[in-house]
């Protein structure tokens, strides 16, 4: 089991009572917050066998609160080195720490965006670009499972909005 970090955008900001219901539904490993663009999302660190299973379990719990649903799934750009290692899949946190400290590699690892006691937060965009160009690592631009989950959530939203849920479900079974 690993801990997977991801973000699920909600259809709207939950009320305080709804936030408590989200917590009671099992989302005590997710934080409710919003962005400067007006969006509201859950920032999740979910333990599961895979990223897709982690996302699915969060989506089920969101739906248990009437009036709330997911409208998108993505990754935060801000990551710890542990998060970055899990997203990379082929480097350990220790490996990234050695690259960040200059103990290994050519140097020039991106500095943290912010540090708070023992929490150092980096930009995944900057880290992944540096790993591709300086270390030759093969990292896709977009995480495949995040892209799949986001596409599925958006399809589900459109199906619900057009009352075509059963038809879309059958379409996925035969496609």
């Amino acid at each position: 089991m690993s801990t997977w970090d991801f973000r699920v955008t909600l259809n709207r900001a939950p009320t305080d009572q709804e936030a408590d219901l989200l917590y009671e539904a099992g989302l005590d490993d997710c934080a409710v917050a919003g962005g400067p663009d007006g969006s509201t999302f859950l920032m999740c660190d979910r333990e599961s066998g895979s990223l897709l299973e982690a996302i699915m379990s969060v989506l089920v719990q969101i739906r248990s609160v009437d009036g709330l649903w997911a409208i998108g799934v993505d990754h935060d750009d801000a990551v710890t080195l542990g998060d970055a290692a899990r997203r990379h899949g082929k480097r350990t946190q220790a490996s990234l720490r050695q690259l960040a400290n200059g103990q290994r590699g050519p140097g020039g690892f991106p500095p943290p965006l912010v540090e708070a006691d023992n929490i150092s937060v980096y930009s995944w965009g900057e880290i992944s670009t540096w790993l591709r160009t300086a270390m030759g690592d093969d990292i896709p631009e977009v995480n495949r499972d995040i892209a799949l989950a986001d596409a599925a959530v958006k399809l589900a939203c459109r199906a619900r909005a057009t009352h075509r849920e059963d038809q879309v479900r059958r379409l996925l079974e035969v496609a």
């Binding site: 917590y23 934080a31 917050a33 400067p36 920032m43 935060d76 801000a78 965006l113 912010v114 937060v121």
Partner: peptide
Amino acid sequence: ATPFKVWSTPRNAGNHAKAVVTWATGH
């Protein structure tokens, strides 16, 4: 923006702390 809601008893305090710092970088 929607404020970051801080739980009294998050499942993992370290991850919750990381989340609020991460959220702050977005602002």
